[in-house]
C-alpha cells in the first residue's frame, strides 16, 4: 500500500513538472523590452530589418 501511495505521488509530481515545462515552451513569457534578461523566443523586434535600416541610412 505504501508503495502505491508513493508511486502515485511521484507520478503526479512528474506529470506536473512535464506539464509546467510544456506550458513554458508553448507560451514563453512576453517581451519585457529587456534583451539582457530575455530567455525566450517571444521577441517581436525585427532586428534584421533594423540593421538593414541603419545600413541604408549610412
Amino acid at each position: 500500500m505504501g508503495d502505491v501511495i508513493v508511486l502515485i505521488v511521484l507520478v503526479l509530481i512528474i506529470g506536473l513538472v512535464i506539464r509546467s515545462m510544456y506550458r513554458q515552451r508553448k507560451n514563453p513569457k512576453e517581451c519585457t523590452g529587456d534583451c539582457t534578461t530575455c530567455g525566450t523566443s517571444s521577441c517581436k523586434v525585427d532586428w534584421d530589418l533594423i540593421r538593414k535600416d541603419i545600413r541604408e541610412q549610412k
Partner: peptide, 15 residues
C-alpha cells in the same frame, strides 16, 4: 518591475 541596467542595451524594445 522592468530591469534597470547601467549599461547600454538593457532596454532595447519599447515597453
Amino acid at each position: 518591475r522592468q530591469r534597470v541596467g547601467n549599461w547600454p542595451g538593457v532596454t532595447v524594445e519599447k515597453k
